[in-house]
Amino acid sequence: MALNLTVAVASGKGGTGKTTVSANLACAAVEAGYRAAYLDCDVEEPNGHLFLKPCLSHRYPVSVPIPEVNGKKCIKCGACQEVCQYSAIVKISKTVLTFDNMCHGCGGCSLVCPAGAITEKERPIGIIEKGSAGGVSFIHGRLNIGEAMSPPLIKAVREADQHVNLTIIDAPPGTSCPVIAAIRGVDYVLLVTEPTPFGLNDLGLALDMLHELGIPGAVVINRANLEYNQLAYDFCRERRVRILAEIPDARRVAEAYSVGDLAYYAIPGYREIMKQLLTSVQREAIG
């Protein structure tokens, strides 16, 4: 058994089954003897806990540094405004205003201030909760409501050390900064799609993203359906990407999902699909 494998589950399009695949894969990994962790990096809308139902044991806030201006020391020179690329610190007539939501925490303003008037303070953006779920180490992040920037919290979820040998990352949807933060540096990515025009269009974007990042990956077809599968087969052949699993479309799968039942235990045949997928991932990722 290879040590320290990190596999991310991503998709481009939302709602294709990332959480389903990653949570069930975590169950298969534990059964196969791995010390496995499930990391929910969809910090805007984390759902993994609804299926894995972890027993949470730790909880802590995650903060980003933001500037604090000491009005007495400030000489109103405007150097801070000049260095800030995000309009998060602005000199307006005789005062300097900060816009915390815009700040990326680069530290430029406090470095540049000639009067030493800018210090940094911590601003909480969300929390991390850790626990365990049937042998799976569980970690998720929850972004505070109204908070725009999720990448620092996503990075913190990934840094929460778990001493495992298989890490499964449940990524957010899309192809921009939050996803990049969730999948950068992983060993392998599973892209979950559905055999529909929307699913495949966004799969194409996700494949471009993997290519850009230089991460190997393969496809899982969820809601596989005899009527439309050919669309996905043709697409994947054209894009030269392998399909590692097909999860059949069925109303009872949707119903099990609706109440938070893990298909791994609830739906006959699902366990075998997931075990097979785990074997395929091991083979593909380790080479």
């Binding site: 939302g14 809308e45 972004l143 725009a148 999720s150 949807p173 921009s176």
Partner: peptide, 8 residues
């Protein structure tokens, strides 16, 4: 989707 930057 989500509640972050592009949604806001």
């Amino acid at each position: 989707p989500g509640i972050g930057c592009p949604v806001i």
